[in-house]
C-alpha cells in the first residue's frame, strides 16, 4: 500500500505555498519596515513599538477584548440553559431542536447581521414596541449593545451545540448515583452535571471568543464606521491605509493574545478537573 503515500505530495506542496508561506509573510512583514514591496525590507520592531505606545491602539485592543469577553459570557449564560433543556428532551424532540438551533447558521452571516440593522433602527420594530409602553426611542444602533447583540446572535448556536454534545455524552447514572447518595438536585447539578459538561463549555468558549475578538464585519455593520475594533484596524491597514507592516504586526499581536487566552482556558479547565479529582 506504500504506493498510496505519493498521493500526499501534491497537497504537501500546495499547503506549503498557500498555508505556510502566507504565515511566514505575516511574520516577515510584522518585523520589518519599508513599504509593501518584498524587495526592500529592513528588520525592525517599529510596528510593535507603534502599537504598544499609542494609547488609541491600546484602547481598541482593550475594547475588542472586552466586547469578545462580554459576548462569550452572554453566550454561556444563554447557551447553557438552552443546551440543558434540549438535552433533557426525548430523543426525537432533541434532534428537532438541534436542527432548529443550527438551521440559521447555514444562512449567510452577513445577510443575518444586515437584518438586525432594520430591527434596531430608531424607528425599527423594537423601538415601535417600546413606544407602545411609552419608552424610547432608544438609540440601539452604533452602540456596544448592538455589536454584542450581533455577535451573540451569530455565535450562540455554536455554544449551544458544544454544550449540548457534552451533556448528551454524559453518563446519567452518575447523577442518579449522586441523588441516591443524598445529593439534592442543586448539588447534583453543581457537583456532577456542571463539571462533566465543562469540556463542552470550554470548546464553546473557544468557538465564540475566537471569531468575536477578530470580527470586523459585525462591528462595521452594527457599530458604524467609527466603531473601531482590532479586526477593523487590520482591515483598514490593508485595504485603505496600505501599511501592511503595521497591519501584520497587529494581526500577530492578536493571534498571540488568542493563543494565550486559549492556553489559559485549557489550563483552567485542567485545574478544575484536578480539583474535582482531589475533592
Amino acid at each position: 500500500m506504500k504506493q498510496f503515500r505519493k498521493m500526499v505530495y501534491p497537497y504537501l506542496l500546495w499547503s506549503t505555498v498557500v498555508i505556510a508561506v502566507p504565515m511566514l509573510l505575516i511574520l516577515l512583514y510584522a518585523f520589518t519596515a519599508g513599504g509593501n514591496s518584498v524587495s526592500k525590507f529592513m528588520f525592525s520592531f517599529k510596528n510593535f513599538h507603534r502599537f504598544l505606545t499609542d494609547k488609541t491602539f491600546l484602547e481598541v485592543l482593550y475594547r475588542s477584548l472586552r466586547i469578545a469577553i462580554e459576548t462569550t459570557i452572554v453566550c454561556v449564560l444563554l447557551g447553557y440553559p438552552a443546551a440543558y433543556i434540549i438535552a433533557k428532551y426525548s430523543e426525537k424532540v432533541k434532534m428537532r431542536w438541534v436542527l432548529i438551533i443550527t438551521l440559521p447558521t447555514w444562512i449567510n452571516m452577513l445577510v443575518r447581521t444586515y437584518a438586525w440593522t432594520g430591527i434596531l433602527q430608531e424607528d425599527g420594530v423594537i423601538n415601535n414596541i417600546l413606544g407602545i409602553f411609552g419608552i424610547g426611542p432608544v438609540a440601539f444602533m452604533y452602540t456596544d449593545f448592538a455589536v454584542i447583540l450581533g455577535m451573540v446572535y451569530n455565535f450562540l448556536p455554536f455554544m449551544i451545540i458544544q454544550i449540548y454534545t457534552s451533556l448528551t455524552k454524559m453518563d446519567y447514572s452518575l447523577i442518579e448515583a449522586a441523588s441516591d447518595l443524598g445529593a439534592n438536585p442543586r448539588k447534583c447539578f453543581t457537583k456532577v452535571t456542571l463539571p462533566l459538561s465543562m469540556p463542552g463549555v470550554i470548546s464553546g468558549i473557544t468557538l465564540v471568543f475566537l471569531p468575536s475578538v477578530s470580527s470586523f464585519c459585525i462591528p462595521r455593520m452594527l457599530g458604524g464606521g467609527s466603531y473601531v475594533m482590532v479586526g477593523t484596524i487590520i482591515e483598514s491597514q490593508f485595504l485603505t491605509a496600505g501599511d501592511w507592516n503595521f497591519g501584520s504586526a497587529i494581526s500577530l499581536i492578536m493571534a498571540v493574545i488568542i493563543m494565550i487566552s486559549m492556553y489559559i482556558t485549557k489550563k483552567v479547565d485542567k485545574g478544575e478537573k484536578l480539583e474535582a479529582i482531589n475533592a
Binding site: F238, S248, M254, A255, I258
Partner: peptide
C-alpha cells in the same frame, strides 16, 4: 509526514479568518 500535514491544516482552522485572509493577500 502526517504530523506535518495535520499541523499545516490546523493553521487555517485555528487562526482567525482575518489572519488567513491577509496572509493570502500578501502571497
Amino acid at each position: 509526514v502526517r504530523g506535518i500535514v495535520e499541523q499545516l491544516n490546523q493553521l487555517p482552522i485555528m487562526n482567525p479568518e482575518i489572519v488567513t485572509a491577509i496572509g493570502l493577500l500578501m502571497l
